[in-house]
Design a protein around this nucleic acid. Structure first.
Length: 348
DNA sequence: CAGCCGTGGCT
DNA sequence: TAGCCAAGGCT
């Protein structure tokens, strides 16, 4: 284990946070009473692997429609998934709803206030449980996200690459987390990582703790954290099927497991190393292949998806579990971006 | 534990 | 621009 970090980091960081904290819709100003746990929880789930600017409009829409756990717990699955459309990582939406229902049914509509109890709820892992306990309930918790990992790795010039360095980083973070204001400290670390101690081109001259930063002293802070090399992203090919009839298009609900799980979508064939053509076409029809493909990049592969079109005289019921959606209301369908791109292409 | 799981911003 | 990256959780 490396040497401990200077204990002055917490006080320096909190003093900086008192002046420079970002004003965010889910955040109470420094020193004021803790914000509503529902809003903290909702924001933390939305913020998992997702940047602040992307989350804000979704957070505003969700809190306007569903102001508390009971309201959210009463939503139908499809309505919730449609509202989440575009945010990505759709398992978060399924877990969000499951969590809201547990809170409404088993906890009287109020989130439990300990890390241990929070950790057992759907969609709440080690990071989110610590963040909620600290920010919403004022408990001392060690909050480690990707920002904290980067900041701590630089402060301590950790040469162990991620993710192997995670235990060391957690121990070092524990060592500088204050007993009071652990929530503000966590948010200060994350603000610092998001605005100053950035992954590339860090703004060290604005940093309140550069005097305690070993990476700054070395003169090359962007050299940390070290990371294990990434795998190359494979290219895959697929086909989407556009079946139009009487001003409607056929949509299907994707299974909960797997890519875009639980989301409404255009029917698709398999996604493979070679173009699958009309494999798994929902019906036999006179398919026309659009002249351009829909390109979309997911986390672990890139997809070139052909678009097969056909028009029918009537809305066939030959496709089990399909539903006909009016073309004039495609925005309300809540399609993942891959399919929203196809809709945009068809509307031209 | 390592692979799976979206999307948009930034350089 | 092509790749890197982000307030991770689940299995």
């Amino acid at each position: 284990m490396p040497a401990k970090l200077p204990l002055t980091i917490a006080s320096d960081l909190l003093a900086w946070y008192d002046v420079h904290a970002r004003q965010l819709p889910w955040r109470a100003p420094p020193g004021t009473p803790a914000p509503d746990p529902y809003r903290v929880w909702l924001s933390e789930v939305m913020l998992q692997q997702t940047q602040v600017a992307t989350v804000i409009p979704y957070f505003e829409a969700f809190t306007r429609r569903w102001p508390d756990f009971r309201a959210l717990a009463a939503v139908e699955d499809g309505e919730l998934m449609a509202a989440w459309a575009g945010l990505g990582y759709y398992a978060r939406a399924r877990n969000l709803l499951a969590c809201a229902r547990v809170v409404a049914n088993d906890y009287g509509g109020a989130l439990p206030d300990t890390e241990e109890a929070l950790r057992k709820l759907p969609g709440i892992g080690a990071y989110t449980a610590a963040a909620i306990a600290a920010i919403a309930f004022g408990r001392r918790a060690v909050v480690v996200d990707a920002n904290v990992e980067r900041v701590v790795a630089r402060l301590a010039v950790l040469d162990t690459p991620l993710p192997a360095a995670k235990p060391e980083i957690a121990a070092l973070t524990d060592g500088i987390t204050p007993d009071d204001r652990a929530g503000d400290f966590a948010q200060a670390m994350m603000d610092l990582g998001a605005t100053i101690c950035t992954a590339r081109a860090p703004r060290c001259m604005l940093c309140p703790v550069r005097g305690e930063c070993a990476a700054f002293a070395r003169g090359a802070p962007e050299q940390w954290p070290q990371k294990a090399p990434r795998r190359v992203k494979p290219q895959r090919y697929g086909t989407m099927f556009w079946i139009e009839a009487e001003g409607h298009v056929l949509l299907v609900r994707r299974p909960d497991k797997g890519m875009l799980g639980g989301m409404l979508a255009l029917p698709t064939g398999p996604w493979e190393e070679a173009p699958p053509g009309l494999t798994d076409a929902p019906i036999e029809a006179d398919w026309q292949i659009a002249d351009t493909v829909v390109r979309h990049v997911f986390t672990h592969f890139a997809l070139d998806c052909a678009l097969a079109e056909t028009r029918l005289d009537r809305q066939t019921d030959a496709v089990a579990d399909g539903q006909w959606w009016p073309l004039r209301e495609m925005d309300a369908a809540g399609l993942p971006t891959l399919f929203a791109k196809a809709v945009a292409k068809m509307e031209k």
